[in-house]
Design a protein around this nucleic acid. Sequence first.
DNA 1: ATATTATATTCCAATTATGGAATATTTACA
DNA 2: TGTAAATATTCCATAATTGGAATATAATAT
Lengths: 93, 93
Amino acid sequence: MTKTLNDKKAEIFKALSNPVRLDVIDLLLDGEKCVCEIQQALKKYEQPHISKSLAKLKSVGLIKDRKDGLNVYYSLNICCMGEFMTCLNKILK
Amino acid sequence: MTKTLNDKKAEIFKALSNPVRLDVIDLLLDGEKCVCEIQQALKKYEQPHISKSLAKLKSVGLIKDRKDGLNVYYSLNICCMGEFMTCLNKILK
DNA sequence: ATATTATATTCCAATTATGGAATATTTACA
DNA sequence: TGTAAATATTCCATAATTGGAATATAATAT
């Protein structure tokens, strides 16, 4: 069965529907980060958990990656994320 | 355990992570609608399914309702929804 | 009171997500 | 080649979501 527009949007929202992955998004809103920096900032989560979170966000196109030696750098791949998060923050404050 | 900001945001995104509920959001972006109008527009889904979809969206504060006789009218309760959907549409086009 | 219309809820089996633990891959450098 | 550091993947038991079917509620009119 072929995916509708809302099927694809639902996948994007599903990728965002997890607090760990939202913690990652928050960090990337501040600019590109390597995995090691993300792990450093989110020490409370296991390394494989963060790695899987990044993979999920990447799989729906929300973030992109770039390799440099041993490091992998991730950054946001969708411009309107910050605006929407700011809006949600206001509503939830 | 007490909910963090990102726990609450995750719940909002979870509510949005379903194509039927996104179909409902699309309709409400056009303005307030009663359940009967939503059912009319989304005939392919069962009535209880639509009712549950509305309940889920309301439970996280994305939409609000208003009763008038036998009818219940729903409308969006978050201003930045349209803007973000437009952004996603562009990316997914 | 009863019937009708509009909407909501409950129950449930099947599917999918979650995160921990162990393991694998990739790159660089001695 | 061998080792270490950075990152990714697989496996798995538990938990959560999904949507259909049946049923319930609420408001109005007769």
